Amino acid sequence: MRIHMIQIDGALQRGLSLLTAVCAAKTGISPSELASRTGLPTSSVYRLLKQLDTAGFVRKSAPGCYVPVPGFLSLTQDIDRNAILRDLARPAIFRLARKTGLTAHLGILENGMVTYVIRVAARANDSASFTREGGQLEAYCSAVGKVLLSNLPEDDLNEYLSDGEFVPLTDNTITNAGQLQQEIATARTQGFALDNFEVSEDLFCVSVPVGPQPADQNCAISVSSSRSARIYEAPESVLDDLRATAAEIASRIAGPVEVQTGNL
């Protein structure tokens, strides 16, 4: 996750900065390490930790180390992350569809499948009518899927590629694991991927990643059209709009900021 550096004063922001650092640590973390990570004076760290302990957000674990309280962490477990992502990103996806005149999607990777969190059609009769919000498609043959696969750690990608058979949906569907790996590597290098009539004989799609983003929120956006729109002749013509929209969404879903402290 990319950290945005900003200048903020106030006890609330210092406390949130410290709490974020405690939650981000994989194990217990010491006050001196917290001071190093947040830029807060060690005296302020001790004072804020005592207040957070009293409020029930953190507890001392091993000698000299602090961890977040499980009850506090459980508050986020019932949050519907897809619903929040949908609410934050829909306005940008709507504008993308209207500006390009193409059907726009935002998708995430779930269990090797692309889940379409948002779908906005520019026209009533669009070629991607078989997609729907909450619906899924195979990742290996879709542009969104290739981008999402390109963001996976290498071990996870290798597991996906060796996990099963890739069924051809059209004559253009890539079904060879080695060729698919090359296609995914190309998507990672060039920053976008294509569905070259691989899902449907009459559907072409261009996708880019949404990033930077939280590590557990791998998502991508796309625009798609039928052959008649002819974007397959110049897919680069929609890249600027896609990338601008992706950057806007990334700024909306970015995680907590890192606080640059002044005189405390």
Results as ranks from 00 to 15, higher is better:
150 S>D: 03
150 S>Y: 04
151 N>A: 12
151 N>Q: 14
151 N>P: 00
152 L>R: 05
152 L>H: 04
152 L>Y: 07
153 P>E: 10
154 E>Q: 11
154 E>C: 02
155 D>V: 06
155 D>A: 11
156 D>A: 13
156 D>G: 00
156 D>I: 03
157 L>Q: 03
158 N>E: 14
159 E>K: 13
160 Y>S: 02
160 Y>Q: 08
160 Y>N: 02
161 L>G: 06
162 S>Q: 14
163 D>L: 12
163 D>T: 12
163 D>R: 15
163 D>N: 14
164 G>A: 05
164 G>V: 09
164 G>F: 06
165 E>G: 02
166 F>M: 05
167 V>W: 11
168 P>D: 06
168 P>Y: 05
168 P>V: 09
169 L>R: 13
169 L>I: 04
169 L>D: 06
169 L>A: 03
169 L>N: 08
170 T>I: 05
171 D>M: 07
172 N>D: 08
173 T>D: 07
174 I>N: 02
175 T>I: 13
175 T>H: 03
176 N>Q: 10
176 N>G: 11
176 N>T: 06
178 G>W: 08
178 G>N: 12
178 G>Q: 14
180 L>A: 03
181 Q>T: 06
181 Q>I: 04
181 Q>L: 12
182 Q>S: 13
182 Q>P: 00
182 Q>D: 14
184 I>V: 13
185 A>Y: 11
185 A>C: 11
185 A>L: 14
185 A>F: 12
185 A>V: 07
186 T>W: 05
186 T>D: 11
186 T>E: 13
187 A>L: 02
187 A>H: 00
188 R>Q: 09
188 R>M: 00
188 R>K: 15
188 R>W: 02
188 R>T: 00
188 R>S: 08
188 R>A: 12
189 T>D: 13
190 Q>P: 03
190 Q>G: 00
191 G>R: 03
191 G>T: 08
194 L>H: 01
196 N>S: 11
196 N>G: 07
196 N>L: 06
196 N>F: 08
197 F>G: 05
198 E>Q: 12
199 V>C: 09
200 S>W: 06
201 E>Q: 14
201 E>M: 04
201 E>G: 14
201 E>D: 15
202 D>V: 08
203 L>S: 05
204 F>K: 07
205 C>W: 00
205 C>S: 14
205 C>V: 08
208 V>C: 01
209 P>K: 07
209 P>M: 05
209 P>R: 09
209 P>W: 06
210 V>P: 04
212 P>Y: 06
212 P>N: 08
213 Q>F: 11
213 Q>S: 15
213 Q>P: 01
214 P>V: 01
214 P>Y: 00
215 A>V: 12
215 A>L: 11
216 D>E: 08
216 D>P: 00
217 Q>S: 13
218 N>W: 04
218 N>V: 14
218 N>L: 13
218 N>E: 03
219 C>S: 06
220 A>D: 11
220 A>M: 08
221 I>Q: 04
222 S>Y: 04
222 S>V: 07
222 S>W: 02
222 S>A: 12
224 S>E: 07
224 S>T: 10
224 S>Q: 07
